[in-house]
Amino acid sequence: MMNASAQPLIRLEGLTKVFYTDEVETHALAGIHLELRQGEYVAIAGPSGCGKSTLLSLLGLLDSPTEGGYWLNEKPVAELSLAERTRIRNQEIGFIFQNFNLIGDLSVFENVELPLTYRGMAAAERRERVGEALDKVGMGHRAKHLPSQLSGGQQQRVAVARALVGRPLILLADEPTGNLDSKNGEAVMELLRELHQDGATVCMVTHDTRYAKHAERAIHLFDGRIVEETKAGEAVEVG
């Protein structure tokens, strides 16, 4: 396992997210302080509705915070243009979603190829990288299939391949086992652990404490606040 770097890859200071629907204000996150270092495997845990996915969306630049600071690789995210945020999502972040989010009309190969296509990579290099990624998750033999022809576990493996094909700085996984049975869930967790051992930084959202234990560090959220942080073998109360 690689040691985490001293420099934080992600730094959050007082991060707040409020959703406004009609006249109702929903405080999804309140005053989040967090640091993630390169090479770390962090789980964000907590019950449904506690703000885990919202936090992951903010980390993945899929949404913007209402208040607070977010530094990614020491760059303040608030100052990034839309195009720069898009580039970072493409090159520095790999997403794994609970519902796989594969495009049904594209083959397995084309789904995994998509981030590289948007990067403008040459076709030959894309083919090589996609082949490697699919082999890594054991899906090389299903490259020409459509997602609908795969089981849930296989679809999530393809999603993992798509996340890692661009060799991102960090993998963000939102409930990656949420739609899988326990056997396939364990297989995906094993895959993430292998990726982490190969040097990947992984940040995973889960409501299942069994899977949170796979991480080196678990951040526990409740009502939009960090209430507990545990490292492998210890528990630290926060606030």
Binding site: G60, L62, R89, F95, I103, P115, Y118, R119
Partner: peptide
């Protein structure tokens, strides 16, 4: 909408 969101999340710019 979902397909477009997936593409945007994976790095497709608005122009693309």
């Amino acid at each position: 909408e979902k397909e477009v969101a997936i593409r945007a999340a994976l790095g497709a710019g608005r122009l693309r």
